[in-house]
Design a protein around this nucleic acid. Structure first.
Ligand SMILES: [Mn+2]
Ligand SMILES: [Mn+2]
Ligand SMILES: [Zn+2]
Ligand SMILES: [Zn+2]
Lengths: 145, 145
DNA sequence: ATCAATAATTAGAATAATTCCATTTTACTG
DNA sequence: CAGTAAAATGGAATTATTCTAATTATTGAT
C-alpha cells in the first residue's frame, strides 16, 4: 500500500493557505515542495538556487516572501545559528539542532516526551513559553546521512 | 566584611588577557566593566552608548573588537535571538534565556545540575557538544527586576 | 470566457549589523 | 626615552534581509 507523500504535502499546504485566505501560487508551491523534498536545513539562497531549476525567473524577494508565509502557516520552521543566515527546516516535530563545527552540517536531534517535559520544567513560575530553541555545537564522530 | 567585587573583575580580566598575551587597554577595561556593572543583555550599540559616558571618543569598531576579545577570553557570553543584533551576557554560569515577546526583555533562567545533565542526555552517541544554547520566547506574567 | 478587484511577484534600492582596511595612536620592552 | 608590535579609529565594504513601486497573476463575479 503505497501512497504519494507529496499529495499529503499538497493538501497540507492548500488547507493551511486557505485558512489564512492566501493564494496557492506556483512560487509558494514550489518553495514548499523543495523544502519538503530534501530533509536538510537550506538557507533562503540555497532554496532560491533549487527552486530556479523549476522556476528560472523566481526572485530572491519572492523566496523570502514565500518562506515568511510558510513559517506563518506553520508549514516549515525557521532555525538560526548565531549570526549566520536563517535556515529552514521541514521537520515540524519538536526537536533540537546540532551543528558540526567541522563541516557546518546541521542535524536534527529528536526529543522524546520526557526530554521535552524536563526542558519546559526549567522555567520558573510566571514564565509562559510559546516556543523554545535548543541547539548544540560541536563535532560529530560517527557519520550518518 | 565587605569587598570590592569589581576588584575581582579586574583580576579576572587582567589574568585572562595576560594568558593570551593581550593588552589591558582602557577600552577593554571599560567595556568589560560596563558589562559587569549591569546584569542585563546589551547589544554592541547599547554598550557603545554606555561606554561613551567614560570614553567619549571610543568607536563602534573598537567596541566590537573588545567584545570579540572578551568572548574569546570567556569573560562574557554572546547571545543571539533570531536575527536581531547580538547581545552580551555577564552571567558565565550555564543558563538558559527567556525573551518576553511583549517587552523584548531578556531574562536569565538558571539551570540546576540535573537539568544540565538531562539537556546533554538528548544527544545520541557520536555527537560531542562543546556548548549548547537553550532559549524560550513567550510572555512573563509576574514582573521582577 | 471576460472583468474588475485584490494579492503576489519582481528588480532593484534601502537598511542594519557586522567586518574589513588603512592610518594613527597606544602599550610594552629594553 | 626609543623602537616595535598591538590596538584603536573612521569610514568603506559586506551580507542578509526588508522595503518600494511597478508589473503580473489569481480570484470571484458577471
Ligand atoms: Mn550533511
Ligand atoms: Mn528589563
Ligand atoms: Zn531541524
Ligand atoms: Zn544571560
Amino acid at each position: 500500500m503505497t501512497y504519494d507523500i507529496s499529495e499529503n504535502h499538497k493538501r497540507a499546504l492548500y488547507s493551511a493557505l486557505r485558512k489564512k485566505e492566501l493564494r496557492p501560487t506556483k512560487q509558494r508551491i514550489c518553495v514548499y515542495n523543495i523544502i519538503m523534498s530534501k530533509k536538510d536545513h537550506p538557507t533562503a539562497d540555497d532554496i532560491l538556487n533549487r527552486v530556479r531549476k523549476n522556476l528560472p525567473t523566481i526572485s530572491l524577494a519572492t523566496v523570502y516572501n514565500c518562506l515568511e508565509t510558510l513559517v506563518d502557516c506553520e508549514l516549515v520552521r525557521q532555525v538560526n545559528f548565531d549570526r549566520s543566515s536563517t535556515r529552514f527546516c521541514p521537520n515540524l516535530t519538536p526537536h533540537a539542532h546540532f551543528k558540526c563545527s567541522e563541516t557546518g552540517n546541521i542535524f536534527d536531534i529528536s526529543l522524546d516526551e520526557e526530554s521535552i517535559r524536563s526542558l519546559k520544567a526549567v522555567l520558573p513560575k510566571g514564565y509562559k513559553a510559546d516556543n523554545f530553541e535548543l541547539s548544540f555545537a560541536g563535532s560529530k564522530t560517527i557519520s550518518s546521512n
